[in-house]
């Protein structure tokens, strides 16, 4: 089975109402399962069937390597939690200029942990994490001004 044919079948499953498709051809069997991710995206997943009676031919083996890439898609669909600014102000990553930053990308954080300070009119507001997880992104540079509702952090929740 050629890769272009598998792509066509993936497309077919993606756009059709069916949720699963299994095809056997020339001793190789391909199973396509449609998954619905947390954010509503429909993600077809292609997996070579384990119940294959004979060793696959080299061409099919190559195809399998190619089609094994799509299962990475579900990890892209992990829902990140946005932390947005509750006010207009200035973003500070540390409690004072000499102090280390509250958090770095990749840090594990607990709910209630301080992420940054937003200053507006000499009032220093601590912004806390509402969920635990890992800091996936810090969207603002230190000392930059931020607007109401602006994205500050993305957290990959536990």
């Amino acid at each position: 089975m050629k890769i272009s044919e598998i792509r066509r079948l993936v497309k077919l499953v993606e756009t059709s109402g069916i949720s699963e498709l299994e095809i056997e051809e020339g001793g190789a069997r391909v199973k396509i399962i449609k998954q619905v991710s947390g954010d509503g995206l429909v993600l077809p997943q292609v997996s070579p069937s384990a119940a294959q009676p004979e060793p696959a031919s080299p061409t099919v083996q190559v195809e399998r390597q190619d089609i094994s890439a799509p299962p990475a898609a579900p990890s892209l669909a992990v829902r990140l939690v946005d932390v947005t600014s509750p006010m207009v102000g200035t973003f500070y990553r540390a409690p004072s200029p000499e102090a280390p930053s509250y958090v770095q990308v990749g840090d594990r954080i607990k709910p209630g942990q301080v992420l940054c300070i937003l200053e507006a009119m000499k009032l220093m507001n601590e912004i806390e994490a509402e969920v635990g997880g890992r800091i996936a992104e810090i969207a603002v540079e230190n000392t930059e001004p931020v607007e109401f509702g602006q994205l500050l952090f993305r957290i990959e929740p536990d």
């Binding site: 009119m121 507001n125 601590e126």
Partner: peptide, 26 residues
Amino acid sequence: KWPNDILANGHKLCGILCETGFDSKG
């Protein structure tokens, strides 16, 4: 003096620094 200083004859008499946080009950 905006936002929250107090001046006397144009010189700084008082400074105010407010900080927010969360108590043990959140």
